[in-house]
Design a protein around this nucleic acid. Structure first.
Length: 884
RNA sequence: AGGCUCGUAGCUCAGGGGGAGAGCGCUACCUUGACACGGUAGAGGUCGGCGGUUCGAAACCGCCCGGGCCUACCA
């Protein structure tokens, strides 16, 4: 058994043990293992991504669960992998091409895709190694990629199957178009941001010369595509205008004034311009009319004006056009006014470019029937959100869900398995059709578009397990146990996995969904590159060690609250790692040669040892319960308190005299220490995998890795020992308090007399003189029930004991009197409060009996203390009177 | 506009019907043979405000104030 170094070196330990875990197959799951399965699929990070705080928290929590369940005997599987991130990845490679002076169109689709794969091989997936650095115990032999062959098969199977069932269709309607990414987006890929804009009031003259109508708009350039002006049918101000036509300025087109119930008479002028091609409301209005209003598209996919916008504006950027339109209208005297106006603009979630609604032919998933089942599964409790309140978010979206636009006009992704024939036939098939079934043509064109990346991630919980093959993995590990993720992708991902899982597996994809916090900076700001407040997890791991970093995240991962992260806190938890390390060093240095006992022989042990084993038992149980309920911070806090404030502060200190001496129970105490350390390491291992393995390997243990050691359970509790220890701790603290409050040096050896209030207390204290002396740094002169307070002593009154510290000459009588009076005041306040309660008939009559009994007991205890303190105060006053 | 969430010690936050807890910070004293990344003791809070329910509210309910977030087509 090697001695531990003076300092823990995270860098070498982390490298050594992670490699060991990998090479010995610790993380590889065996579907034939008959133990109860526990499965997690990792939220696949983007292939373009690098580890940020959110990933670090997410992976840490999953790793804790996986390691804990493994130690608890489960057949665990944690599937890792990455997402091909269509738009993001394509953007990256397109930038690369741009630097070379070409674009994807010049090199063509095939060569472009090759370039992306080359890029992936070279730069993609750095995050995987970063996750390993974090200690993630994923089964890397099962790592998947959303564009790999198996997952692509799954995607194609799902697409074709949904199409055959009429749940995928193609339609021409307005879509959210990003002019920069040049692709359609789904509704949820659009972000809304409030901006201070302008509302422009424009006059549209009636074609019959009878004046004008004024409309208000935030997007004047779209007027070029107006095909009507709408007013509310019940708006009497405009009833005369309905059915008339107005002359659309700058174009001279005649457009009708129509009635539509969607118009809010209270907004603006109560008359609204209708641009069916560039506004979702207007599209709806246009389709409601009979006959439907025409669509005139004035903005092209590149964000520039079309020929239909008129010769003057064609080819102009949409914003430049806006300025030009306003100027021209002003020149024509048609701008009534412009006023400030707060409204929300839509932007692309990838590049923040303002979205342009455009009409286009796209593929859709009809989600209604799928969503219904997905809602039901949560309502029925088949899947539980933790914290539960996230159900509301899920339901709110699911119940108002619109069809999902899944086609994207990019190249990097799953190409839609649809083929077109010149005869107009559309074929959707698992394999490329050889000829058109209708006309026999063999020159078929495959759909150019690819699928939304989220389409493939929606299948992740079963596609990664081998679906559509019926694999053993699928049988064993589906449904997965829990999904751990952030709230920001409940719509994007969680909801869609629910729909697809239920549809294709006939069962929910996970039993629990644990929604964790967002990691923010110390002042609560969201971390972002533009704000410059990003903290790099890798830097934290380099500086403080992975275990300290993980423990920090865990300790702050309280449910329902964001993690405000600051470096100081990591430093604080590095101290905890150091504390553990040093405790281990001490134990191993003082138990040389002692083997690990199965269970310490408690009967033969002192009260302190029985107490600490009992505390370990309680802590293990706390941690288990906390993890069952995903209260990670509680688990962390519980262990921190046990290790630092019970094991180190009390137990190790109190057994030092035994270890340094040669008493009969020395061997038993040594065994107990080895046991405590070993079990504590196991308890901590899921949270701090590296330092625990490092210590464990250097001490007596069974097995080849702590990864496979059982999680502590069935440790004996000993209530009697906990009660007895309370008397000891109370007495020690009383003496220390006197020392502290009288400002006596810690090195000064005090003498103390302990007056006990029961035989019980007297017995315990007498048996543990050695501990008392050591912990209180005092010579215990006497212990007894009928001691007299020696003159010139300082006193502390406690529940079980009264402590006298004789301080002839040293005692500052005035200071002591002040101390006692302060104590008296506190006690009197308490007794007053409790007394008035116990005099209150309503309290006595209505409060539960056990509460009343408890309050009475507290009151009696308080009164006894007051009595004793009063006596002591009187003696002190006498002493002062006599002395002066 | 709707919905959610938070407001507790200087800071960060637990807790949750029976007179307030932790970590860090702060103060005093201490190189006691694991650890100064340490030890001991201490100071510090009318639990955002106002009402209500209750024998009893920091906790439950309502309103208000103040942060944060999400959803939404008000042109």
């Amino acid at each position: 058994m090697a001695e531990l170094d003076k300092n823990y070196n995270p860098e070498t330990a982390e490298k050594k043990w992670y490699e060991f875990w990998l090479s010995s197959g610790m993380f590889t799951a065996d579907p034939d293992d008959t133990a109860a399965p526990f499965t997690i699929v990792i939220p696949p990070p983007n292939v373009t991504g690098t580890l940020h705080m959110g990933h670090a928290l997410n992976a840490t929590l999953q790793d804790i669960l996986i390691r804990w369940k493994k130690m608890s005997g489960c057949n665990v599987l944690w599937i890792p992998g990455m997402d091909h991130a269509g738009i993001a990845t394509q953007n990256v490679v397109e930038r690369q091409l741009a630097a070379e002076g070409v674009d994807r169109h010049t090199i063509g689709r095939e060569r472009f895709i090759e370039r992306v794969w080359t890029w992936k091989a070279e730069y993609g997936g750095r995050i995987i190694n970063q996750l390993k650095r974090l200690g993630a115990s994923c089964d890397w032999s099962r790592e998947r990629f959303t564009l790999d062959e198996g997952l692509s098969n799954a995607v194609r199977e799902v697409f074709v199957s949904l199409y055959e069932q009429g749940l995928i269709y193609r339609d021409n309607r307005l879509i959210n178009w990003c002019p920069r990414c040049r692709t359609a987006l789904s509704d949820i890929e659009v972000e809304h941001e409030d901006v201070e804009g302008k509302l422009t009031y424009i006059r549209y003259p009636f074609s019959d010369g009878s004046g004008h109508l004024t409309v208000a708009t935030t997007r004047p350039e779209t007027m070029l595509g107006d095909t009507a002006v709408a007013v509310n049918p019940n708006d009497e101000r405009y009833s005369h205008a309905i059915g008339k036509t107005v002359s659309l300025p700058l174009t001279g087109r005649m457009i009708p004034v129509i009635a539509d119930p969607s118009v809010d008479p209270a907004f603006g002028t109560g008359a609204v311009k209708v641009t069916p091609s560039h506004d979702f409301n207007d599209e709806a209005t246009a389709k409601r009319q009979s006959p439907a209003l025409p669509f005139i598209t004035v903005i092209a996919p590149d964000g520039k004006m079309t020929a239909d916008a008129g010769r003057k504006f064609a080819g102009m950027d949409r914003y430049e056009c806006r300025r030009m339109v306003i100027r021209d209208l002003q020149d024509a005297g048609l701008v009534e006014k412009q006023e400030k106006h707060g409204h929300a603009i839509s932007q692309c979630y990838r590049c923040k470019t303002v979205i342009e609604p455009l009409p286009a032919l796209q593929w859709y998933v009809k989600v209604g029937p799928l969503a219904e089942q997905a809602v039901k599964a949560v309502r029925d409790g088949k899947t539980n959100f933790v914290p539960r309140s996230w159900e509301n978010t899920y339901f709110a979206w699911m119940e108002n869900i619109k069809d999902w636009c899944i086609s994207r006009q990019i190249w990097w992704g799953h190409r839609i398995p649809a083929w077109y024939c010149d005869c107009g036939e559309v074929m959707v098939a698992r394999r490329e059709p050889e000829q058109c079934p209708k006309c026999g043509n063999i020159n078929l064109r495959q759909e150019e578009d690819v699928l939304d990346t989220w389409f493939s991630s929606a299948l992740w919980p079963f596609s990664t397990l081998g679906w559509p093959e019926r694999t053993r993995e699928l049988q064993k590990y589906y449904p997965t146990s829990v999904l751990v993720t952030g709230f920001d992708i409940i719509f994007f991902w969680v909801a869609r996995m629910m729909m697809m899982g239920i549809k294709f597996m006939g069962d929910v994809p996970f039993n629990d969904v644990y929604i964790h916090a967002l990691v923010r900076d110390a002042s609560g700001q969201k971390m972002s590159k533009s704000k410059g407040n990003v903290i790099d997890p890798l830097v934290m791991m380099d500086k403080y060690g992975t275990d300290a970093f993980r423990f920090t995240l865990t300790a702050f991962a309280a449910q329902g609250r964001d993690v405000k992260f600051s470096e100081e806190r990591v430093e604080g938890y590095r101290h905890f790692v150091n504390k553990l390390w040093n405790a281990a060093r001490f134990i191993l240095a003082n138990t040389e040669g002692k083997m690990l006992p199965a269970v310490p022989d408690l009967q033969s042990l002192d009260v302190g040892s029985r107490w600490i084993v009992s505390r370990l038992s309680a802590t293990a149980e706390d941690v288990r319960k906390a993890l069952e309920e995903y209260r990670f911070n509680d688990a962390a806090g519980s262990m921190y308190h046990f290790i630092w404030h019970e094991l180190c502060d009390w137990y190790i200190e109190m057994v030092k005299p035994v270890l340094y001496g040669d008493s009969a129970d020395k061997a038993a105490v040594q065994e107990c220490l080895v046991y405590l350390l070993e079990r504590s390491l196991r308890l901590l291992h899921p949270f701090m995998p590296y330092v625990t393995e490092e210590i464990w390997q250097n001490m007596p243990h069974e097995g080849n890795s702590i990864v496979r050691a059982p999680f502590p359970a069935d440790i004996p509790r000993d209530g009697a020992a906990e009660d007895q220890m309370e008397v000891l701790m109370e007495t020690v603290t009383a003496i220390r308090t006197i020392r502290g409050e009288l400002n006596l040096s810690p090195t000064l050896e005090l003498r103390a007399l302990v007056k006990t209030h029961s035989d019980h207390a007297r017995g315990i204290l007498s048996e543990n003189m050695l501990f008392l002396k050591k912990l209180a740094r005092a010579d215990i002169l006497k212990i007894g029930g009928d001691l007299e307070k020696p003159g010139g002593s300082s006193v502390a009154v406690r529940s079980h004991v009264e402590v006298f510290v004789p301080l002839e000459g040293l005692l500052d009588v005035d200071l002591e009197i002040e101390r006692i009076r302060k104590e008296m005041a506190k006690l009197e306040e308490t007794s007053e409060f409790l007394g008035s309660k116990l005099r209150n008939q309503e309290f006595l009559g209505r409060a539960p009996q056990q509460i009343v009994a408890k309050e009475r007991e507290k009151f009696d205890d308080c009164m006894k203390k007051i009595e004793r303190v009063r006596e002591n105060l009187q003696k002190m006053l006498d002493l002062k009177g006599g002395g002066s």
